[in-house]
Amino acid sequence: MSPRPSRERAGSSGTTTGHFPFPFPFPFLFLAELVLPGELGSVRVARHCVKTVLTAAGHRDVTGVQLVVGELVANAVLHSISGLAGGLITLDVRAVGDTLARLDVMDDGGLTVPHVRRPDALDCSGRGLHLVAETALRWGVGDNALGGRVTWAEVRTTEDEPVTVPKPPDRAAAEA
């Protein structure tokens, strides 16, 4: 059984999103659980598996979900105890219909709490959670009962409505 969080912290928007794990604000359907080694190679595996699972469940646009899961798994490897030898990361994938995916990345905790950083222009890292905040509808961090951490995100899996750009007026008709 996967560790579950006992409380939740606000995401980047600064708003509290409710208590976790139950009840969810939406009727989430459990799709898959992956237990991955705490190493950077797990990022690629997580992206591939999430794409496969969500596509099989009827989700059309999973590129945003792949970006988010890659960042969350990479952070769990780089910034938690799960990144040490023998560490594990658990990824749960849930869905609301074919329009929304929820990802829960569970690790063994660390010395810091994930938060959006404001890196300098020349910094080589520190932008991952900014990408998560910009891509996900909501995201947050919670502690689980075993002393670990859960970082979660909810991401749309439908393409945005196409933007209609008006045609420029025909020059010949405008001059006549």
Rank of each mutant, 00 (worst) to 15 (best):
E161H: 06
V113R: 05
L111T: 10
R118V: 09
L146V: 13
R127Q: 12
D107V: 05
D107K: 06
G148R: 03
A153Y: 03
G148A: 08
R149Y: 00
A145D: 15
G109W: 01
D123S: 14
C124T: 15
D108F: 10
L131P: 00
G148Q: 06
E154C: 10
N144T: 13
D143N: 11
T158W: 12
T157E: 06
V150I: 05
T151D: 01
R138F: 15
N144R: 03
G142R: 08
V165I: 15
V116F: 00
T112E: 14
V141C: 08
L137T: 10
G142W: 04
D108G: 14
E154G: 03
L137F: 07
T164A: 14
L137C: 10
R117E: 14
V163G: 02
L122T: 15
G147L: 04
T135P: 05
P162H: 04
R118N: 13
L111H: 10
R149W: 03
P162E: 09
E161S: 11
E134S: 14
A133I: 03
V116I: 04
C124K: 14
L146F: 09
A121Y: 10
R117L: 13
G109F: 01
V155S: 03
N144S: 13
D107P: 06
V150C: 14
P162W: 04
L122F: 14
E159C: 10
P162M: 01
L129F: 13
R149K: 05
R138G: 07
H130I: 15
E161Q: 09
T164Q: 09
L137E: 11
T151R: 01
R117H: 12
W139N: 02
W152D: 07
G109S: 04
E154V: 08
V163W: 03
V155G: 00
V150N: 13
T112A: 13
L111I: 12
E161N: 00
T135H: 06
A153R: 00
E134G: 14
A136E: 06
V155L: 00
T135I: 06
A133S: 11
P162T: 06
H115V: 08
T151P: 01
L111G: 12
M106F: 01
G147K: 07
S125G: 09
V141W: 10
D120I: 05
T164L: 15
G140Y: 03
C124H: 15
G128P: 01
R156C: 08
C124G: 15
V165Y: 11
V150E: 10
V155R: 05
G126V: 12
G148W: 08
T164G: 04
G126K: 11
T135F: 02
A133H: 09
V141P: 03
V113D: 07
T157L: 09
V116E: 04
G140P: 02
A133Y: 02
G148Y: 00
